[in-house]
Design a binder for these strands. Sequence first.
DNA 1: GTCCTCACG
DNA 2: ACGTACGTGAGGACC
Length: 651
Amino acid sequence: MEFRTLSKRVAEALGVEAPTIPEPVAPEAAADASTDWPAINPDAYEHIKEMGALDAWLDRINAQGFVAVDTETTSLDEMRAELVGVSLAVAPGRACYIPLAHRKGSGDLFGEDVLAEGQLDRDAVLERLRPMLADDAILKIGQNIKYDAKILARHGIDVAPIDDTMLLSYALNSGLHGHGMDTLSERYLSHVPIPIKTLLGGGKSAITFDRVDVDAAVKYAAEDADITLRLWHLFKPRLHRERVTTVYETLERPLVPVLARMEREGIRVDRDTLSRMSGKFAQKMAELEAEIHELAGERFNVGSPKQLGEILFEKFGLEGGKRGKTGAWATGADVLEDLATEHELPARVLDWRAVAKLKSTYTDALQDHIHPDTGRVHTSYVQTGANTGRLASADPNLQNIPVRTEEGRRIREAFVSDPGNLLVSLDYSQIELRILAHIADIEELKQAFRDGLDIHAMTASEMFDVPMDAMTPDIRRRAKAINFGVIYGISGFGLARNLRIPRAEAQAFIDRYFERFPGIRAYMDATVAFAREHGHVETLFGRRIHTPEISARGPRAGFARRAAINAPIQGSAADIIRRAMIRMPAAIDGLPARMLLQVHDELLFEVAEDAADDLIAAAREVMEGAADPAVHIDVPLTVDAGRGVNWAEAH
DNA sequence: GTCCTCACG
DNA sequence: ACGTACGTGAGGACC
């Protein structure tokens, strides 16, 4: 009897020999596959309204070992969305939609609100789909499948194994903007999908998908599955041909269930704490506003940079005014800080802005994100969010919760553990500088990290010939700015602005730095040369970051050059923490602990009090060893840990 | 919708 | 001569 592996069956579908290792290779099949495909035709899709018909689709899926899956719901917010229907595609042009919870009527308060005709029972269908969705031998293909997996997880259904066309696109082309289905369909299939707006309408009168007419929904939903499957047929062979299979299979795909889990866990946020803070901030803003109006001699909207600029630079004629591209006066914090040495108005505006930011973006907005059922805030990580391989966090963004000022940091007191639990934070110490030391192979820096020295003080000592025991905070501060500048693709202008020193002086620092650490300049030159030759740079783990503008002329060249220098450093750090996250579930299995958040170089966990030590030990080991065995990094990766009943204490 | 501003690593 | 530190997301003003 023949044992058919997943990859063999997938390979057959792609019309090629099965490979001996994990995934299929089908360059030839992909090269002309699209020419053989039927045109995308929404009228050709099947509306499943009987179990027998569904079983026929399942037979086909079981036989071929892969299927494109898409869910239709009532919301883009996976934690609140209700499942409305499921679509499946088994071959280009062969797709169906299973409506489950479409409703008749307008949805008005007094309107009819009963299930539409031509649907199957939702729970019965889910039970029928469940074995297939969890079957190890059947690949489930989705576009942003984390979304669908979360919806189905809420109905107790696991989806695995998976492929994701959005992530395939990202692995192949991180430099291109847009990995959404509409963009991909237009770019690769030259087809404009049915716009969701034609079904839902827009603005205030927009309806939810459960109010969409079933026949229209069949065309829309099945088309999405069809497009997803076609994109997969195009992308999957390119993965191997373009040598990014490992990145996709070790850094992208396995992260999906990990992120889905973290997002569903959420983090407990105390509404009363936020609400009290909002009240205090409102009071403070009112006081400051009165002072500001008094100082200005008139009432105006303090939140309007336009009005503020007119008062500062036209009414008062203050020096240092600059207009931006659009002709508006620049009133950013750096400008106001300069003015603040001579006038009280800009100083008070800075105070007002600090409070207004905390209130509007954090203490007010976060309250709206507390889930009514869980009492927790559930962010959404965007795996394709950053070109460098970093994650992005949205709705809400939990990667930019204040920490730098005392007042802001108090917002973290609202992020709390459940009773009997603690929050535990583990963060990589100086990971980007360590990676720089390794990539650029700077012996002094590497040794300093091995010796556990203060790296900024050590840099300062080398650069300014100051013995370590005679180091002053100000000299160290300058060296720190230079170290960060190097990571960002340093320029005299940028460093001068950051340190508020003359540009010539900043340039002299940089020259001195390169003199002292010639390997850094060599790394920068080599990286830019690599980008010019290949159109991309790479992380230590083979992730490619495309640099399409590296050979541009004019100011864009400078941006592209600095981004190219930064990308391998930022991207390698991103890869390392991804590797840690992927291994984490197995490492903490059995502990009463859950991973909640990632903030670029930090992982935040919630754990039962008496297991905190065990968790820290386990998680630290995973994080510190996360580059192994794929890459040997010639400096230790070290992780700092903290714990407490809230995020302020834990950090 | 775009710009400005500012929160984070 | 140009015009710049790298990577993000979000709120408010303004068009």
